[in-house]
């Protein structure tokens, strides 16, 4: 199910200045597992039912960015103005980027841990937080650890983060992981047998973005070879990709 928007988006992702979220990361493609509460909270944000500020934390790969982007997509579908800011890509630029965002309904700040060494960015994030609160906007944030453990030097920012709804995302169990991979493949029209999903989980980097790239490869290769995504076939495609 790839619409025009997704195509634009995929192209846009090559640009250094892309602050658009990726439409492929939606709620339907997220397996909640132990994180049902966080999913429910973010779905509410998307619909704008409550003016809230949420901070998500958890280890890399648990789905923080996925959920932030899913909430952005949902909010946008409800006609709300949304900005998704992956700080990892932005932190080398001027923090003035965070100015004048209070006109936006939902602001999502991903990878807050990237601000650890950037005191000016921390100040800008603190001021943004205050302005969005004053304007009654919604703010979603994510980082790998609890606010107090992010290593931020600005206590004002840390205390603001401590006062919001802080939710932890847990890792999925093996069965949920298999389900998540299969569901993502299925949404792209590919059938991924359970055995293949297990093989990928055990042998590849557990990173959703990387997995989407793999799916592109599998899609092209299976179409060309007219083969199903069996373990031997997938192994072959991975080996060829590594040789490239």
């Amino acid at each position: 199910m790839v619409g025009t928007g997704s195509n634009d988006c995929s192209c846009g992702r090559q640009l250094a200045l892309d602050f658009q979220w990726d439409e492929r990361f939606d709620f339907a493609g997220f397996v909640a597992g132990p994180n049902a509460e966080a999913v429910a909270a973010l779905e509410l944000i998307g619909k704008g039912d409550r003016r809230r500020v949420i901070y998500l934390y958890g280890e890399p790969g648990v789905g923080k960015s996925h959920l932030l982007q899913a909430a952005c997509g949902e909010a946008s579908a409800w006609g709300r103005a949304v900005v998704y800011l992956p700080l990892r890509q932005l932190v080398n630029r001027s923090p003035r980027l965070l100015q004048e965002l209070e006109g936006v309904d939902v602001v999502a700040l991903d990878d807050l841990d990237c601000l650890t060494k950037a005191i000016e960015w921390q100040q800008a994030a603190f001021h943004l937080f205050n302005r969005l609160q004053d304007a009654g906007r919604e703010l979603l944030m994510a980082g790998p650890r609890r606010p107090a453990k992010l290593g931020l030097a600005l206590p004002d920012l840390v205390s603001r983060l401590q006062g919001v709804l802080v939710l932890r995302l847990e890792k999925l169990g093996d069965e949920d992981n298999v389900l998540a991979l299969s569901r993502r493949a299925q949404r792209r029209g590919l059938e991924l047998p359970k055995a293949t999903a297990r093989y990928l989980l055990n042998h590849c980097r557990r990173d959703t973005g990387y997995f989407f790239q793999l799916l592109d490869k599998f899609d092209a290769a299976s179409l060309q070879a007219q083969r199903r995504l069996t373990v031997p076939f997938v192994k072959k495609v991975l080996a060829e990709a590594n040789n490239d």
Binding site: T4, G5, D8, Q20, S76, A77, G79, R80, A81, V82
Partner: peptide, 12 residues
Amino acid sequence: VPDQQLNTWIRP
């Protein structure tokens, strides 16, 4: 323009 882009960039 797709809806998502319209809502984010044009309508505001």
